[in-house]
Design a protein around this nucleic acid. Structure first.
Lengths: 184, 184
DNA sequence: TACAATACGGAGACTGTCTCCGTTTAGCAA
DNA sequence: TTGCTAAACGGAGACAGTCTCCGTATTGTA
């Protein structure tokens, strides 16, 4: 890629991150282009669809997912606490931008989505949690990490769109944990 | 209301129901006006916001909610089957139109939403199921019907946006049921 | 039949998406 | 350095959707 193209691409991503954080994933792309000081054509050449831009923004975010799952696994404690800790991290990670939970969760399992590989990062992270719990015999045998991602993503989507805060989310996540773990 | 106004209003609702069923809740309102044979101004005078139109469309749907909950309650069987039967009906009811689950669930508990009273219909229906299960001592004491509506609505939203079918939804609803009921 | 009051409709302002193509620039080879 | 070409740029403008404004038409009443 030519140096100027790289420069513009980087700048667009940087600005988009800012604009999306302010206004959510529905923000105007022409606005992003304008603030980045490039023409609309340049933006759309680099990112033919809005989703491609979102995907690029999330690049740095992948690292945070790995950190979060490592932290959750490192924490000693009963399976329920581990699961709840991962759920909370999961919700936070996908809720960084308004509209994120719905966007990510609905792309889950759709191989044609431009953000498919971001979804894989999440399912793989959940896989690690699932594997640990399964080792301990704490997880119901018929659940897998896609189920978990959909359930927790659903809660996050509702919370995001309905403006729920932490205290409203927690009881919902607890129900999920109780439904996923084998009865004590 | 003047007779011509009433006529137009009815016609707009009728056409909107059809258009929304075909294209989802994001369908163009000008298209609705056009098909209804009225000007855009007329549509927007009757329904200042898209949500008001959606609210009007759902009028007939309220009856179906009452029917569904009655049917679920009439069914003899263990609490888990009752709950799952209600969940399935709930998902179906709010998924009649594309985008419905997200719209309805995110309005849940927001008193300013134009469709707030449709949400109340759903919570009240869930209340009846909750009351029955609580009588039987089958429900965890700390859950209420708003929790249930949010959880099931979240699953419905994910299913709606991700194009999941019945077989993908069922295991998710089962997890919810297991998390909501006291362990057997 | 006349006359308010009420309602209608559609042109057009505005906003956002996305494309097309003439212009500019980076990078390389001589 | 210079010249050249492929690559990239940018922004005008086509298109689509939302929503308003206001001149016109209709209703229902006195």
């Amino acid at each position: 890629m030519r140096a100027d193209a790289q420069r513009n691409r980087d700048r667009i991503v940087e600005v988009a991150r800012e604009v999306f954080r302010e206004q959510g994933y529905d923000a105007s792309l022409d606005e992003v282009a304008k603030r980045a000081g490039v023409g609309a054509g340049t933006l759309y050449r680099h990112f033919p669809a809005r989703e491609n831009l979102i995907d690029a923004i999330m690049q740095s975010w992948v690292d945070r997912v790995d950190e979060a799952v490592a932290k959750a696994l490192a924490h000693e404690g009963p399976p329920r606490a581990l699961l709840l800790s991962w759920f909370a991290a999961y919700v936070e990670l996908i809720s960084l931008h308004k509209g994120g939970p719905a966007k990510i969760t609905s792309a889950m399992g759709n191989p044609d989505s431009p953000i498919v590989h971001k979804c894989q990062v999440l399912t793989r992270a959940s896989d690690r949690v699932v594997a640990r719990l399964r080792d301990e015999g704490a997880l119901r045998p018929d659940v897998d990490s896609v189920h978990i991602c959909r359930l927790v993503g659903g809660v996050a989507a509702v919370a995001d769109q309905g403006g729920l805060d932490q205290s409203a989310i927690s009881p919902l996540l607890e129900v999920l944990a109780d439904g996923l773990l084998v009865p004590a």
